[in-house]
Write a protein that binds this DNA or RNA. Structure first.
Length: 589
RNA sequence: CGGGGCGUAGCGCAGUGGUAGCGCAGUUGCUUUGGGAGCAACAGGUCGGCGGUUCAAACCCGCCCGCCCCGACCA
């Protein structure tokens, strides 16, 4: 392709609303344009990279035997009511929805469990028809509360979603492993540094789930890794080995009722300093409203060490409820009798409809003794609390957030925290949707059984953006060869007959050799062409200019290394092909 | 949804009540031609929208819309 026949304009400066590198560079390179918050257009150049990604995913999915389908984006409300997700997503406010002229409601699908389950239940009646795995690559909609980071969190975005159907857990396990392998193949083909981590399964539901993360500082997710590489988890899910207990081996001292004044000091750090102790001896008591799936709720107290924070993703699961939220500050006095900072586990007053406020302690507090806790009176703490002696504990939970340096659950070494971009997520769904939507088949004993499902998402645009986050320098994008819009940029530096003829010949030869070449044949100065080629990030650059041509050579360089070598024109195609075959990391000469 | 900020030419920005500007990009001409050239001329604007105050509003006031950041929330 020749630039003079293309629609492409680069920008010297990034749009002011672009925040992350991938958005800035894709916009400057003229590949991507923002149309509204979280909604983007791909230009011809940008769409080529997106299509490369689509094809890689499609090839690897097909290789596993998965079957491509096309499910609707506009889905009738009744399907979503059937699965129970309409209310849930509407409450969260993230469901794009609309009405047709008869006021029938539709959702713009954020995922397609309902649609695919509906397709399957209309198609199967016998266990003999299983197993299979259905996938699609289509636009998804999520009215994110806060879209941000360019393509990394859009409201309209391209996603591959796959749904496996089996008669039993064993079949699901096999599908899950197959998908994990396919995802590894996909991200490896894209040349991305990625990690597989344990994850929370979130609103989709189900049991096991793991996330594929591209490691990048701009990532929204915090990831926890053991130093030996044996353990990796999203911080939402991560556990630690038991922490060292500061009170280990101590005798229990007599409980000191309200004997420790902490006037006006609400921070754990300040209280520890004031009381002459360390933060791990200060107990924080947090009051949460736990909301069950049937919308009933109760207030409970969570007791945790002052140097730790409660993980609000782990908490509802530990309590066996659907949701938690902190009790609003203005309601605290009616339950505790004091302001935040002085709340403690002893003497809480149950709100209406509740006999008592159950007190749960984090695992790290189970054996705590000789620690301070709030006295439910402003400016006052109790001293020498011993959990087993002084508290009526409703349960011991594992709800602390893992920290950098905490001991690894693998038993050796400590945990380290890195940031990552979630590009894929695989779930073992189980029978959640098949039961709700009566997607059943007859087993060999003629018993009707709900199908066991898995679901597997992969963000197409997000992965392309993640590739840019991971592969760029000050001058622009450095496309991994498999995702490059064109693999070779051909630059003709002057417009005299010799240069143009030599470039024309190379252009023809490269195309004939099956190389995707983008020829910058514009009437621009050399510097402009160099800058634009670097910005767009073609992995290999071929330059035809008066200087080198006078010596009878063209120049070939890689975007990554930027060291140009003079190559005889008849050798250029060969060198380019060899360089691309090696991933364009270094010139193959 | 809470807090903060922004909205002026394609992009980046200046302009605090009195003729709407600058840089880049664009068009034409001349010169230039190996890392975002120079000179000259030109073109391009409902100053986010609506309403108000005023002799006069990009600027002051009100309402609305859009966008960004922090937080809460979240496949």
């Amino acid at each position: 392709m020749r630039w003079s026949n293309y629609l492409l304009s680069t920008l010297r400066e990034a749009p002011g609303d672009a925040e992350v590198v991938s958005h800035k560079l894709l916009a400057r390179a003229g590949m991507l344009m923002k149309v509204a918050a979280g909604i983007y257009s791909f230009t011809p150049m940008g769409f080529r990279s997106l299509k490369k990604m689509i094809e890689i995913v499609r090839e690897e999915m097909d290789r596993t035997g998965a079957l491509e389908v096309d499910l609707p984006i506009a889905q009738p409300k009744e399907l979503w009511v059937e699965s129970g997700r309409w209310d849930r997503y509407m409450n969260d406010g993230i469901l794009f929805h609309l009405e047709d002229r008869k006021a029938t409601e539709f959702a713009l699908a954020p995922t397609a469990e309902e649609a695919v389950t509906d397709m399957v239940r209309r198609s199967v009646t016998s266990w003999r028809q299983l197993p299979f795995n259905l996938y699609q690559i289509r636009t998804k909609f999520r009215d994110e509360i806060r879209p941000r980071f360019g393509l990394l969190r859009g409201r309209e975005f391209l996603m591959k979603d796959a749904y496996s159907f089996d008669v039993d857990q064993k079949g699901l396990d096999a599908h899950y492993v197959k998908m994990e392998k396919a995802y590894r193949a996909i991200f490896e083909r894209c040349g991305l540094e990625y990690a597989l981590v344990q994850a929370d399964s979130g609103a989709i539901g189900g049991s096991a789930s793991e996330e594929f993360m591209v490691v990048a500082d701009t990532g929204e997710d915090a990831l926890v890794f053991s130093e030996d590489g044996q353990y990796g988890a999203n911080v939402e899910k991560a556990i630690t080995a038991p922490l060292p207990e500061p009170w280990a081996g101590e005798e229990e001292k007599p409980f000191g009722r309200a004997d420790s004044p902490t006037p006006g000091i609400v921070s754990t750090e300040g209280q520890a300093r004031h009381l002459g102790t360390t933060e791990d001896r200060i107990t924080n008591t947090m009051l949460y409203e736990a909301i069950r799936s049937d919308e009933t709720s109760f207030v409970c107290a969570i007791v945790i060490r002052g140097d730790l924070t409660i993980n609000e993703v782990k908490l509802p699961k530990a309590l066996g409820v659907a949701h938690v939220r902190l009790v609003p500050e203005e309601r605290l006095p009616e339950i505790s009798g004091c302001k935040p900072g002085f709340i403690g586990p002893i003497g809480l007053m149950a709100p209406k409809g509740q006999d008592e406020v159950p007190v749960y302690v984090d695992r790290t507090m189970e054996n705590a003794r000789n620690v301070f806790c709030g006295a439910n009176e402003d400016g006052t703490h109790h001293s020498n609390l011993s959990v087993k002696r002084d508290l009526k504990v409703a349960g011991v939970l594992e709800v602390a957030t893992a920290r950098d340096g905490d001991p690894s659950p693998t038993g050796t070494g400590v945990l380290r925290i890195k940031r990552g971009i979630e590009v894929g997520h695989i779930f073992k769904l189980g029978t959640k949707y098949s039961e709700a939507m009566k997607c059943e088949v007859a087993d060999p004993q003629q018993k009707m059984i709900p199908l066991t499902m898995g679901c597997y998402g992969l963000g197409i645009g997000r992965t392309v953006a993640a590739a840019v986050e991971q592969n760029h320098d000050d001058d622009g994008i450095i496309w991994p060869v498999p995702l490059a819009p064109y693999t070779v940029a051909l630059l003709s530096l002057q417009r005299d007959k010799e240069v143009l003829e030599a470039a024309e010949k190379l252009y023809t030869d490269l195309k004939a050799a099956g190389v995707e070449v983008f020829w910058d044949d514009r009437d621009e100065r050399p510097g402009v062409k160099f800058k634009d080629a670097d910005l767009i990030g073609f992995p290999v650059r071929v330059v035809i200019g008066g200087k080198a041509l006078a010596k009878g050579v063209g120049e070939v360089s890689t975007r990554r290394e930027k060291k140009a070598e003079g190559i005889a024109p008849e050798k250029v195609v060969e060198v380019v092909k060899a360089t691309l075959a090696g991933g364009a990391r270094a010139l193959a000469v």
